[in-house]
């Protein structure tokens, strides 16, 4: 009980520290928004400013984020790997008999979800969305496949190999700007000579690649979890 009271006191102290430092934190919001609003579209060709930051201004960050995703996936596979082959690695889901109604609706919803995911990925530069979010939606759509067909077999090794090559492709495409503009990790089309329509080609290509990479990564994660059986 004393320990609990001490803990609550500590949290109270933290809260008051936060309360007094709040004024400084509120300064934070006056920094960058107006700059992005004024120059964002012209410099990157993306009306969605979040995408313009993810794929242009701070592309370096996003690349490392994708790299961390790859590392986490490899870690999960490494932890869950078994040296002795297990033949009857049953899937978790087929223990509960999936109701027929659910299967039918999953069949109806699956293509719609996949289409919605691709829509989010491809329109990432003009509307809310982009590679990361669209990839997550595509991965959720693939998850529905396991409800429709519980016996589905997935080759994790192949997926991870594709993911690695996709990551390399993203790196190469992101560095191409060195040859066209002289700087790494930015749009390959110079905003001075090309209009925003041409610039968006680069954004779409990078969004699609990132989207597929994230989708494959999340797919691997939940396949590893579903396989974690006998």
């Amino acid at each position: 009980m004393i320990r609990n009271g001490f803990l609550l006191l500590l949290l109270l102290v933290l809260f008051s520290v936060f309360y007094f430092s709040l004024q400084d934190l509120l300064e934070f919001q006056k920094t960058s928004a107006s700059y992005f609003l004024e120059y964002g579209l012209d410099e990157t060709g993306s009306s969605n400013l979040v995408t313009s930051i993810l794929l242009d201004y701070r592309l370096f960050d996003s690349l490392f984020e994708a790299g961390i995703l790859l590392i986490a996936v490899s870690g999960i596979i490494w932890i869950s790997k078994h040296e002795i082959e297990e033949k009857n690695a049953e899937f978790m889901i087929d223990k509960f008999k999936t109701p027929d109604l659910f299967v039918t609706f999953s069949r109806l919803v699956y293509p719609l979800m996949l289409a919605f995911g691709f829509y989010i990925i491809i329109n990432g530069h003009v509307s809310p969305g982009g590679g990361f979010q669209g990839g997550a939606i595509v991965a959720t759509a693939i998850l529905i496949l396991y409800y429709i067909d519980a016996e589905k077999e997935t080759n994790i090794k192949l997926i991870v190999t594709i993911e690695k090559y996709l990551y390399l492709t993203i790196l190469v495409i992101a560095s191409l700007s060195f040859f066209t503009r002289g700087t790494f990790f930015t749009n390959i089309f110079d905003p001075g000579t090309f209009d925003t329509g041409t610039q968006s080609i680069y954004l779409i290509v990078l969004n699609v690649l990132v989207g597929f990479k994230v989708a494959l990564g999340l797919w691997t994660i939940f396949t590893a979890f579903l396989k974690e059986g006998r």
Binding site: N48, V50, T51, M92, I120, P128, G129, G130, F132, Q133, A136, I137, A139, T140, L143, L218, I221, F222, F225, L226, E228
Partner: peptide
């Protein structure tokens, strides 16, 4: 922040509960 909301809905309502269900049943 609609971009963040899309990511949260896709991940937080499907994939995270699934992995919790599996690890708790395991």
């Amino acid at each position: 922040a609609p971009d963040v909301a899309i990511a949260e809905v896709a991940i937080g309502s499907a994939i995270i509960p699934l992995i919790y269900v599996i690890s708790i049943s395991r």
